[in-house]
């Protein structure tokens, strides 16, 4: 094994696990202990990643308070460090981490609030796409329609929660000084998030519309998405729902399942 690789793995252990023993053996002491010198780098790495998470998840931070957030962020960073240097996009798995994090178990809605903040962050940073002209589907045979899959604009996202995450999110914005209690039994949310004219917005969808759009956004073919809606409550007009996707500029591209 390369000795540089060995040192770099020791550095990783020092930064993420706090174990500086192996790395310290490679470092000159020179008046300040090797562990103290390593601590500068450990601090830089963890504080900057923790700050990136706090920027993406400000409401989670407010819900659990900043000190607990720093503790949770530290545990997350150590277990699931970023796999890309674009750290503004770090935290895709933070909500799942919180869902399984024992100290948060009583905050049953926390992971879903984190999911909302993640989708909002991604919607804010996403590239602008050009909406697909529905005329580009004109050459398709009617029989092929059920094999259609759609690529949504990068800013679009869908999430559902059994908890009133919108009310929780609104009550915990930084400008809100007096937090009214949120009734956790007041119902869940079926949300669509997007950026429009530079502003990230979200809205609640009817159950059937949500099921349809979320299935398509997840790569389900049109025929299967329509079937998935069949068991969902409420009226559902397929033609109108498909037209709405184009009118709202949600669709960036399409493909046919089973074709090259």
């Amino acid at each position: 094994m390369s000795s540089l690789l060995e040192i770099q793995r020791d550095f990783r252990r020092a930064i993420l696990a706090g174990d500086t023993t192996a790395l310290a053996a490679f470092i000159e002491v020179e008046g300040i202990a090797a562990a103290e010198r390593i601590e500068i780098h450990r601090n830089n790495a963890r504080m900057s990643l923790s700050a990136a998470l706090a920027e993406t998840f400000p409401v989670v931070c407010r819900l659990v308070d900043a000190r607990f957030f720093a503790f949770a962020a530290h545990e997350f960073i150590c277990g699931l460090p970023p796999d890309t240097p674009c750290v503004a996009g770090y935290g895709a798995r933070f909500a799942d981490f919180l869902a399984d994090f024992p100290p948060c178990r009583e905050l049953v809605y926390l992971a879903d609030v984190a999911r909302l903040e993640w989708v909002l962050q991604r919607a804010g940073a996403a590239a602008d796409g050009t909406p697909l002209d529905p005329a580009s589907l004109g050459g398709l045979a009617a029989a092929d329609a059920e094999r259609l899959t759609f690529r949504f604009q990068p800013s679009f996202g869908y999430l559902c929660s059994p908890w009133p995450i919108i009310e929780i999110w609104r009550a915990n914005q930084s400008e809100v000084t007096a937090r009214a209690p949120v009734n956790l039994e007041s119902g869940g949310a079926l949300l669509e998030v997007r950026r429009r004219d530079g502003v990230v917005e979200f809205r609640e969808l009817a159950p059937a519309t949500f099921a349809f759009r979320a299935a398509l956004d997840g790569g389900t073919a049109l025929g299967d998405a329509i079937e998935a809606v069949a068991g969902v409550e409420g009226e559902f007009d397929v033609n109108a729902e498909c037209a709405a996707l184009f009118i709202e500029g949600a669709i960036a591209g399409f493909n046919l399942v089973g074709s090259a």
Binding site: S2, S3, L4, L5, I7, Q8, R9, F11, R12, I15, L16, F26, H41, N44, A45, S48, L49, A52, P81, P82, D83, T84, P85, V87
Partner: peptide
């Protein structure tokens, strides 16, 4: 400097030992 090992990005500009091996890498 370096910041990636085994696919993990450590978000700091970490130092290298200045050796022939490092120079080659």
């Amino acid at each position: 400097s370096w910041s990636v090992v085994d696919g993990a990005y450590l978000n700091d500009l970490l130092p290298l030992p200045y050796t022939e091996e490092s120079l080659a890498i």
